[in-house]
């Protein structure tokens, strides 16, 4: 009876939810995602009582994750994303009886699609964008059609700068596509680079988005999107050439609001 119940629960939980990260070039998708996953992994490993753990599933994902984190610890950035990547993680839940006896593990396979920003531009709004990204743009749309959730990464300095007509079109096209042609259940809007706004603590990117891009805003409201204003890399320094770089001794524990978006999308209580 118990084994049948476990099998049933396993089937329910191994639905392989997939998430797609979209946003223009240099909006901070890879940096955010890498830092957030690193932080969640560490938090779960330090709280065994919760019965959850998160690990990379395949060698390729592990290699990519480690090389990105290691680049940031050395004061650099992960290499620019030049091709689409599927990243596989396993979220494991320990099933215990009476909170004590370990009966089984239930694995949920999480699939993340990290696309270069240029692919987003090609797929939505800008048909004249570089034809090099044509195939990937089609793949992005296919991934979105089957995705459980979408992380829309918005470069906050660009948003703060004022209305951008091209971006308006891209956002509108993306959200129309999500509404009409996909089964996306959760949309999570991530405003990145919060650190640059320390001098203006009142600044609210959500209000800015509402004022500048009202069509996109209406859709996001209808779909009950969640909004997060995050800093993946806190207190970045600037090298002698003026490049913003992660500070010495960078740790993802220094970041702000980092895990909330992923926890919301995965319905994790952390």
């Amino acid at each position: 009876m118990i084994s049948k119940a476990i099998k049933f629960v396993k089937e329910q939980l191994t639905a392989e939810p997939s998430f797609v990260f979209v946003g223009p070039p240099a909006s901070g998708k890879t940096v955010y995602f890498t830092c957030a996953m690193d932080r969640i992994k560490k938090i779960l490993s330090q709280s065994p009582a919760c019965g959850l753990s998160l690990q990379t599933e395949d060698k390729k994902t592990l290699k990519r994750h480690n090389s990105s984190i290691s680049a940031m610890k050395k004061g650099g950035w992960p290499p620019k994303t030049m091709a689409a990547h599927k990243l596989y993680y396993l979220l494991t839940k320990k099933i215990r009886v009476g909170g004590k006896f370990h009966l089984a593990d239930i694995d949920t396979r999480l699939i993340y699609h990290d696309y270069p920003g240029e692919v987003f531009e090609k797929a939505f709004g800008d048909e004249n964008a570089d034809p090099h990204w044509e195939k990937e743009a089609k793949n992005l749309k296919t991934d979105l059609q089957t995705a459980h959730g979408v992380f829309l990464v918005i470069d906050t300095p660009k948003l703060h700068n004022g209305e951008d007509e091209a971006y308006n079109l891209q956002l509108f096209d993306l959200l129309k596509f999500i509404e009409n042609e996909t089964k996306v259940k959760r949309i999570c809007v991530i405003f990145t680079k919060r650190d640059l706004f320390r001098r203006d603590p009142e600044f609210d990117p959500k209000q800015h988005l509402r004022l500048l891009y009202d069509d996109a805003w209406s859709f996001l409201e209808r779909s009950k999107a969640a909004f997060f204003f995050v800093t993946a890399v806190s207190n970045p320094g600037s090298d002698l050439d003026g490049n913003l770089v992660p500070p010495k001794g960078f740790e993802t524990s220094q970041s702000e609001n980092l895990i909330e978006p992923l926890a919301w999308a995965l319905k994790l209580q952390l």
Binding site: T156, P157, K158, H160, N161, G162, L196, F197, R199, D200
Partner: peptide, 12 residues
């Protein structure tokens, strides 16, 4: 010319 926030931070 970069985004306004960079100018604001310089000014600040």
């Amino acid at each position: 010319r970069p985004e306004r926030i960079h100018f604001m931070n310089l000014y600040g």
